[in-house]
Write a protein that binds this DNA or RNA. Structure first.
Length: 490
DNA sequence: CCGTTTGTTCTCAACGATCC
DNA sequence: GGATCGTTGAGAACAAACGG
């Protein structure tokens, strides 16, 4: 532990520390209760692993203001050196003030943040003094605070005083390190209580960064194709839901199936279904939509086009099912009605569980293949099938566990091309056990990412495709450019 | 002892997303 | 489409706690 009293050596030491990236520092002041207190010592440590103060430098600057000025100029004002103090404002008072000092960290403020009462899990310490923190957070023993209020103006200083002075920086470095660990931990916990939705899992697979956005800032995460508006895709979802509701309620739909099975003609029934749906739902929708925005004609006809294809599909299924049940029953047995929202605790390997929420989409039953289909409408091309697989695996799992319905496989239909994807129960099962628990872990890590840290949630490997239709694209790019740069500078 | 920053608490307002 | 929820920001007044 070098204790320096000669001006030349002190200046050399200051220059030496001027190239450090981070230092832990403290000051001792003589006559703090007198009208004109004098700065007595500056202690510096740049070796955070030191536990007995051997690497600490003690600069004796009593009544040598030019040394203090040199220190302020070379160290305090240098933004490239992070200066860590406990209760920095007191030290800064003697070291050039707040205006000159750049890049100062105050451990007292850090600990204050961690102990805030309204936080979820506040850190408990008996008080926030550096010595207390050293004992309670870093398991230091034999911490002596006796010398703090001793006479720092006397020369020579006692051995005890010098020991106290050097240990201050050691405690500081260790407390600081521990506090950083705790804040990092806290940030991960901060959002822990907000449940994931099933869509979150899919988005996390498609684009982790968009997932981060959507989850942390509650932003929209639905991808939109550039040539279609959000109104149209949500209208499609609404109308397809309406179709099923109306088909259940209006007896005119079930009468279409009253003929004996052999006499039912697919084209004919399809046309009648479409006509009925047009009358009951689409025409009223068309009228109000055209009134609010007359420019939508083309989009609306495209929407109707897509709906007719959907109705065609449903008719085909209903006709196939008609073989197995009566005309009255066929609709209610094909389109399965269920409670609208469900929560489920998904058990994880580590014994914890992840709460999942989900609003149901359509469930249809296929009698011929004896399988329950989960229907999901998507408005963009699938760059990553495993994302859909994960979504449907979770969905199917909850159905099975919560409602007692076994999903053998699921159909995934897509607007507007109507390509279909089907996944077998086996595929779903495998995804459930291999991909998803790991993904949950990753997702929690991504959620805890802070802008000052390296490694933000990554962009997807399908960036070229997804970024083009990502609603958050601009924000995402500027946000990350700005925030990551901020983090780098820190 | 004391200077001073930081957080706390409260309000008002606005906003967006989601739900029904 | 309207109600509700949670989030965000600003402004203000007030309380707490540290160093030596």
């Amino acid at each position: 532990m070098p204790y320096l009293t000669e001006a030349a050596k002190i200046l050399a030491t200051i220059t030496k520390f001027a190239s450090a990236k981070i230092i832990w520092a403290d000051t001792e002041v003589a006559g703090w209760d007198s009208p004109k207190p004098r700065l007595s010592l500056i202690q510096i440590l740049s070796e955070p692993t030191d536990i007995n103060g051997d690497c600490a430098y003690i600069l004796d600057v009593l009544d040598q203001p030019e040394l203090v000025t040199a220190f302020v100029k070379q160290i305090m004002a240098n933004p490239n050196i992070e200066k860590v103090f406990h209760y920095a404002k007191c030290d800064l008072h003697y070291l050039g003030g707040k205006k000159q000092a750049k890049n100062v960290t105050c451990t007292f403020n850090l600990v204050k943040k961690l102990t805030q009462k309204k936080r979820r899990n506040p850190l408990k310490v008996s008080n926030k003094k550096l010595k207390t923190l050293a004992v309670e957070l870093c398991q230091f023993s034999s911490v002596d605070a006796e010398e703090q209020t001793s006479d720092w103006g006397q020369r020579p200083l006692t051995e005890k005083q010098l020991h106290y002075a050097k240990m201050d920086t050691v405690y500081l470095a260790h407390v600081h390190r521990r506090l950083l660990e705790l804040t990092a931990l806290r940030k991960v916990e901060k959002f822990q209580h907000i449940p994931f939705r099933i869509t979150h899992v899919r988005v996390a697979l498609e684009c982790p960064r968009l997932f981060y956005f959507g989850y942390r800032f509650r932003k929209k995460t639905m991808f939109l194709q550039s040539n279609q508006s959000a109104d149209i895709s949500s209208a499609f979802n609404d109308l397809s839901e309406q179709f099923i509701n109306i088909a259940q309620q209006e007896s005119q739909f079930s009468t279409l199936f009253e003929l004996p099975f052999e006499q039912l003609q697919e084209e004919q029934v399809t046309a009648q279904m479409q006509e009925l749906f047009y009358k009951f739902a689409f025409f009223p929708y068309w009228q109000t939509a055209i009134q609010t925005n007359p420019d939508q004609v083309q989009e609306l006809s495209q929407l109707w086009q897509e709906l007719t294809v959907l109705i065609q599909r449903w008719t085909k299924l209903l006709l196939s099912n008609r073989r197995y049940c009566s005309a009255q029953e066929v609709i209610s047995k094909t389109f399965i009605v269920h409670e609208p929202g469900v929560e489920y605790n998904f058990p994880l390997a580590n014994g914890k569980q992840e709460l999942l929420t989900r609003r149901w989409d359509n469930l249809v039953y296929d009698f011929k293949n004896r399988s329950l289909h989960v229907v999901e409408y998507k408005t963009y091309e699938l760059p990553d099938k495993s994302a859909q697989l994960a979504q449907l695996a979770l969905y199917s799992y909850i159905l099975r566990e919560k409602l007692g319905l076994a999903v053998d496989w699921a159909v995934y239909t897509m607007v507007p091309q109507w390509q279909e994807l089907t996944f077998s129960g086996h595929q779903l099962e495998q995804t459930l056990h291999q991909l998803i628990p790991e993904k949950f872990q990753q997702m929690r890590q991504w959620v805890g990412w802070e802008h000052s840290q390296p490694n933000p949630p990554p962009l997807t490997s399908h960036t070229e495709i997804l970024c083009d239709i990502c609603p958050q694209r601009q924000k995402c790019q500027t946000f990350f450019a700005v925030e990551v740069e901020k983090g780098m500078r820190k």
